[in-house]
Design a binder for these strands. Structure first.
Lengths: 235, 235
DNA sequence: TGCCTGCCAGCCCTATAGGATCTGAACATG
DNA sequence: CATGTTCAGATCCTATAGGGCTGGCAGGCA
């Protein structure tokens, strides 16, 4: 999840020149929010020229932003036909994602366990604290901080392995993690349980036993899967 | 690794209009070959305008091709500074890659084991056959078929899991797998052993026991690691 | 000799224009 | 009424031009 170094207030009027930064970053954020909130329905085409007109920029930065979004799986590109919003997660997609997380994240926890520095530990604790304090509303703008803290916790563990490829493998999943929140329209409903599980993972890693840390992470992922399936309205 | 549906002969002279396809695909292939052969040294800057002049196209398709290459890890982008060729593999990078493969590929073999169809089995056998017959020269053009068959074998197993995220996780590594061949300038020196190990993995999967298949895959990855470290000229 | 300053070429980034292609509807014809 | 054709609009794709910034180099000064 790449973010620009600075975001100026949304809702700004047209013609107002955006801050001196790469416009593609701005377009990326704008499209991401539209996708997360469901304003862009699955299957709808995302016109390059049309988006450029809406955001009052030229097609060039829109093209670059869409090229990045394609690698998150949120949009798909067909040559000479344009971009379309990818279909929503099904129950099967979600099960596959959890299966993959079960294969990768406990390994990350185990590898990271032996490399815990006080600095890194503090960052993990900060992430859990942010989880507790983040607002939880129905729109992406309201729960994005929560999601960001959640994602940051798991990514920090991946980075703590010191293995760039485990980070890359996790990132291949992480971009998709955000999407499943949408697949039933439910917001953040499992915050209390999830926070406790994150704390348990953190405690296990701090204790220094790799196997316990791996088990705690596996337990967390399984419980997330269980709760999400219970919450989902239908297939 | 996305490829255009058709590739016309490389080495074509300037001015020759490329086939009716998206130019970005062509630029992507051209840059990939330059990277794999080492014509673009690690750390060198890849100028957008300069590349456009060399290939006789405008900067726009070059920009899109580089955006795709960035996600393979071969080039890195710094905002407002341009693209640079990613640094070459060190011995530590290689160890990390093998550690990650050990975490992911045995799981793939286990998951794929229960879903073997005769058609898929035939594709795997074909990959091993191609490994035996592929030429093995020092330049990328000569050993690319060997590498392609190797990569195809492992990718087929990942796809056979039926889990799109395990495929994505493997792809996060797979794009890098090819590069490590470059890190000492050594060509294909372990073909006979590697072919036998691939055959062992295939046999284990055909027998239907998931744990045996996972063990065979883990054994293969470990032995690849051992041979490569023995071959490497230095750190 | 060493250091600072102004100039200049190159590059990234964005905007704009034009050609090529696809889609969809109106229209003519059997 | 069904079907093939034409035409207009939208869209993608590429090329070209210009603004703003960075980095190197020559020349002047202590």
């Amino acid at each position: 999840m790449q973010r620009p170094s600075q975001i100026n207030s949304p809702g700004s009027r047209k013609g107002k020149p955006v801050s001196r930064q790469v416009l593609a970053d701005h377009v990326y954020e704008e499209l991401l929010e539209s996708l997360m909130d469901g304003r862009l329905e699955p299957g709808a085409t995302v016109s390059i020229d049309g988006t450029a007109r809406d955001l009052d920029v030229s097609p060039t930065p829109v093209r670059e932003a869409l090229a990045r979004l394609e690698h998150t799986g949120m949009v798909r590109r067909v040559a000479l036909k344009g971009y379309r919003v990818a279909p929503v997660f099904t129950r099967e997609d979600f099960a596959e994602l959890m299966e993959a997380r079960l294969a990768i994240e406990p390994v990350n926890a185990r590898l990271a366990c032996g490399r815990l520095t006080p600095e890194r530990l503090a960052q993990l604790e900060q992430a859990v604290t942010d989880l507790r304090t983040a607002p939880r509303g129905p729109s992406f703008a309201e729960y994005r901080d929560y999601l960001e803290a959640d994602e940051r916790f798991h990514r920090l563990i991946a980075e703590q392995t010191g293995n760039q490829f485990m980070v890359a493998a996790y990132a291949a999943l992480g971009g998709q993690v955000q999407r499943f929140r949408l697949f039933g329209g439910v917001g953040i409903t499992d915050a209390e349980n999830a926070i406790a599980e994150h704390q348990a993972v953190l405690d296990a890693m701090a204790s220094g036993d790799p196997e316990t840390a791996a088990a705690a992470m596996a337990d967390h992922v399984r419980k997330v899967r269980g709760r999400a399936i219970a919450d989902a309205p239908e297939g």
